[in-house]
């Protein structure tokens, strides 16, 4: 999983991630160890900054 530079940090991805794999302070940061690649963050990102 990859977060592109145009992430605004709205944290929708963090709010919908069931695995507590995302932290957001200004930009999203995905913890690859916790991530199961369910792609929920990708479909909830309003600016299409999270790429699977």
């Amino acid at each position: 999983m990859r977060v592109e530079d145009h992430c605004v940090g709205c944290a929708y991805c963090m709010l919908v991630c069931k695995f507590e794999a995302i932290e957001v302070f200004g930009k999203a940061k995905i913890n690859e160890e916790k991530c199961v690649k369910c792609l929920k963050c990708v479909i909830y990102c309003p600016v299409k900054a999270v790429k699977g």
């Binding site: 944290a11 200004g26 600016v47």
Partner: peptide, 11 residues
């Protein structure tokens, strides 16, 4: 709980 920022394309 959450820190959310809003700017540019999602301001």
């Amino acid at each position: 709980l959450a820190v959310q920022s809003f700017s540019r394309d999602w301001p």
